[in-house]
Design a protein around this nucleic acid. Structure first.
Lengths: 142, 142
DNA sequence: TAAATAAAAGAGTTTTTTCTCTTTTATTTG
DNA sequence: CAAATAAAAGAGAAAAAACTCTTTTATTTA
């Protein structure tokens, strides 16, 4: 469904939201452990997301990654788009470039409904909404 | 969503169904052209599907690929499973191995609905049902 | 039964994705 | 301001996916 890069990104964003809701920051090593991902790899991914403004970071002692108020309101769809692009939301299920309403592939209309539901679900899910359930952190690993 | 291999596979199966409904066979070169895929690559994919019994073939002059009655009844879900496995139908949206009802990731329950709909849609779509609309063949390219 | 045909199998190469390590830059704190 | 800390950036390596070519095997037909 999503690339591994994208899965790590979503897990990391949710994790960081949980951990920095109170105002602190969290380091890359703790993030990697917290979501069970390769440390250097998730670092690269977060650099990219940071450049795109989806999360914040500061260098040096007491530095780390965090989410400001605006970033907390980003949706999982925003994260997915930033990493994998929007092909999952708009692309043809059979990989055809020219597939459209007027020139549909055999499963175009059925597939459209599912893509739409997926998009809506991920739009509704804001990064900041996963903070309440504290226990959830366990479930971002493995 | 699906691997390219899988997209080619589904397109090829639909194409072969359309072309061999009347009882004939179709060669690999025509299939590759018909669905706009790399010839040697789709050949490999169909060999695999043939071994798994999802379609039939014969060698030699007048040989080629075709679908017998039973194969026509296979669903697109069967094809997807044969190529990509069933991860798309059962796997966690965030890539977690241990994600389950009792140990869910943050989007487990929402994601489950979408996976289910996708599965149902592809189960319902039988390879043989795409034969009526003759014009459809154009829409398996590009 | 020899030649022609077409898929199957074997053995790759290329490209993309995933992952790693080292060096640099920014920030803090003693 | 020097040392320590932590992310950013650069430059890859490893693994997986996508794709290609050649040889073999099965089948038909002249």
């Amino acid at each position: 469904m999503f690339s591994k890069t994208c899965e790590y990104a979503v897990r990391a964003m949710i994790f960081i939201a949980q951990k920095t809701k109170g105002g602190g920051k969290i380091g890359i090593r703790d993030i990697a452990k917290g979501i069970d991902s390769p440390e250097y790899f998730i670092a690269k991914i977060l650099q990219e997301l940071s450049r795109k403004g989806l999360l914040q970071s500061t260098k040096g002692p007491n530095g780390g990654f965090y989410l400001d108020k605006a970033s907390m309101k980003h949706s999982l769809a925003d994260v997915v788009k930033a990493v994998d692009g929007d092909n999952i939301f708009f692309g043809c299920g059979l990989g055809l470039n020219q597939c459209s309403e007027s020139h549909p592939c055999p499963i175009h209309h059925e597939f459209k409904k599912i893509r739409k539901q997926l998009a809506q679900m991920l739009e509704k899910a804001k990064v900041g909404t996963f903070t309440e359930e504290l226990e959830i952190q366990t479930f971002l690993r493995r």
